[in-house]
Simulated assay, not measured.
Amino acid sequence: MPRYFAIVPAAGSGSRFGAEKPKQYLGLLGRPLIYHALAALTACPEIDRVWVVLSPDDPWWPQYDWSELGSKLETVRCGGATRAESVSNGLRAAAMVAADDDWVLVHDAARPCLSAEMLAALFADLADDPVGGILAVPVADTLKRADAEQRVVATEPRDGLWQAQTPQMFRYGRLSEALAKCSAVTDEAGAIEALGLKPKLVRSDTTNLKVTYPADLALAVMILRGRK
C-alpha cells in the first residue's frame, strides 16, 4: 500500500503582506501562522511524515516550540528561491523513505484553515486516481480583465474556472519528474500539466484560504474560532 507524506515549503518572505517577519511566523490565535497548517497535517493519521522546507538562514523557526506537533514533523534547511525549487529540494530530502508510488501532499505554509474533512475528501477522491489532484473551489465572482490603467477591458467567462488550493497531491516519482522538467510553475499541478496530464479537481470550500494580506489573517481567526 502506498504511504502518504507531506511537504510544506516555508522559505518565502511573504513580501506582499508587508510585515517585518515572514508571514508564516505571524501570530494567529497565540501560535505562528504555519503552526496551524502543520497541526492539521501531523494530526492526520494517514500521513506518515511532514517535512517543513526552511530557508538555510531562517532565524525564526528556533524561536518557537513545535514539540506538541509530535515526531512526524521534520525540518530541512534547503529552501530555494522559488516554490518549485523548495518543493524539489524537499522531495530530494524525502528520497530515503519515499517510494515512487507513495503520495506526496504539498501544502502552503500560509494556509492555516485546512480541516480533517478536506484531507479526507482528497484521500477518498484520489485513492485510485492515475494522476493525482488538488483541492479547489469553483470561481463564483465575475472576473474582469484590466488594462494598465486599471480600467475594465473585458469580462471573462467563469464557466469551468476553479481557484486552486492546497494540498496538491501527486505520486512521489511523478512529481519529482514533473518539477525536474518544468520548474517555471506557480504550483505543483502546473508541473504535472506540463507533462500532458490532467490533475483532478477535488471540491473544497473558501474557508481553506491562503493568508496573503492583513485582512486574510482576520478571516482566518474567525474561521478557526468558529470551528472550536
Score class of each variant (00 low, 15 high):
Arg77Trp: 11
Ile192Ala: 02
Cys113Lys: 06
Pro45His: 05
Gln150Leu: 15
Leu28Gly: 11
Ala94Asn: 07
Thr166Ile: 13
Leu179Trp: 04
Thr212Ala: 06
Arg3Cys: 13
Cys113Ser: 08
His107Arg: 08
Ala98Leu: 09
Gln24Gly: 09
Arg3Val: 04
Val76Glu: 09
Ala140Thr: 09
Met222Gln: 15
Gly70Ala: 10
Ala184His: 07
Ile223Met: 09
Cys182Ile: 00
Pro112Ala: 03
Glu46Ala: 08
Ala84Leu: 05
Pro22Trp: 13
Lys200Cys: 04
Gly14Thr: 12
Gly226Glu: 06
Gly160Lys: 09
Arg92Cys: 05
Glu117Cys: 05
Ala215Pro: 01
Ser86Arg: 07
Leu105Tyr: 06
Cys44Met: 08
Val202Met: 11
Glu177Leu: 14
Val8Met: 13
Gly160Trp: 09
Ala99Asn: 05
Thr207Asp: 14
Ala37Trp: 05
Pro199Glu: 14
Ala10Thr: 07
Arg151Thr: 11
Val50Tyr: 08
Gln24Glu: 14
Ile7Leu: 15
Val131Ser: 00
Ser115Trp: 05
Ala148Gly: 12
Ala218His: 12
Ala19Tyr: 04
Val202His: 09
Gly27Phe: 07
Ala220Ser: 13
Leu26Gly: 12
Lys198Glu: 11
Leu161Gln: 02
Gly27Lys: 08
Val202Phe: 08
Ala39Thr: 04
Arg151Ser: 09
Tyr213Ile: 12
Gly30Tyr: 04
Ala43Cys: 10
Ala194Phe: 03
Glu193Lys: 11
Val52Gly: 02
Arg225Ser: 11
Glu193Val: 13
Ser13Lys: 15
Val50Ser: 10
Thr42Lys: 01
Asp102Asn: 13
Ile223Thr: 12
Leu179Arg: 01
Glu188Cys: 13
Leu219Trp: 07
Arg49Asp: 07
Asp58Met: 06
Pro32Asn: 04
Val221Ile: 13
Cys113Asn: 10
Leu28Trp: 03
Leu126Gln: 03
Gly196Trp: 01
Asn208His: 04
Ala154His: 08
Tyr25Gln: 02
